[in-house]
Simulated assay, not measured.
Amino acid sequence: MVDSNREAELRRAVEALYFGYRSFTSLPDQILAEYDLGRAHHRILYFVQREPGISVGSLVAVLDVSKQALNRPIRELEALGFVTIRSDPHDGRIRRLSTSAAGAALESRLTGAQLDLLESVFADVDSHAERGWRDVMARLAGDG
């Protein structure tokens, strides 16, 4: 149960997270809309770019979604020429994903907008604030 003495403060934290996330996703959402894509497509591009050749199964685990949830956006990215899908040379049942040059460029544009925003925000706060933010985000993600 939430301590009633902290409820207002916690509600402000919820709002800060909501409005911060809205700002964090605003420009990428506009870019994605140019291609009729959404945030799921960005997440896929981001992690495939970070780990070229990632298997669909590994991507499912990283994103903590079902294969069914990834199937449509992966196919859309493939149809648009942003992602390539290849069978694993050692196990044909495993599908490996990579970004094409166009997919890498789109991912760079999307994530670049977020990196610029974070760099700007972190430049305005001291290292303790940045470290605190990272700690909070890690805890929210279940990593801390």
Rank of each mutant, 00 (worst) to 15 (best):
S127K: 10
E130M: 11
H90G: 12
V121G: 00
D88M: 10
T84H: 05
V48C: 01
E51N: 00
S55T: 06
R139V: 03
A8N: 13
V65H: 08
L110D: 02
D29P: 02
V125T: 12
Y46T: 07
P73R: 08
R86N: 13
L80D: 10
A101Y: 01
G112P: 02
L117I: 11
Y18E: 09
V62A: 07
I74R: 09
F47Q: 09
R93H: 08
V83K: 03
V60F: 01
E15H: 13
T99G: 04
V2Q: 06
V125H: 15
M137W: 03
D3R: 15
R6V: 07
S26Y: 08
A102C: 08
G144W: 01
V136E: 13
D3L: 14
V60I: 14
S108E: 01
A105F: 00
L117S: 11
S58Y: 05
R93P: 04
A113P: 07
D116N: 15
V121S: 02
S100L: 02
R86D: 14
P89E: 07
R109F: 05
L17A: 15
S87M: 10
L37A: 11
N71P: 04
V125M: 13
S87C: 07
V56F: 00
T84G: 02
I94S: 11
R131G: 04
Y35N: 08
R39V: 02
Q49K: 00
G142F: 10
A33K: 14
D91V: 10
S98R: 02
T84E: 04
V121W: 07
L117R: 13
A79C: 00
I54S: 03
R109G: 05
L45A: 07
I44D: 06
N5Q: 10
H128S: 14
R22V: 12
S108W: 01
A141N: 06
R75M: 11
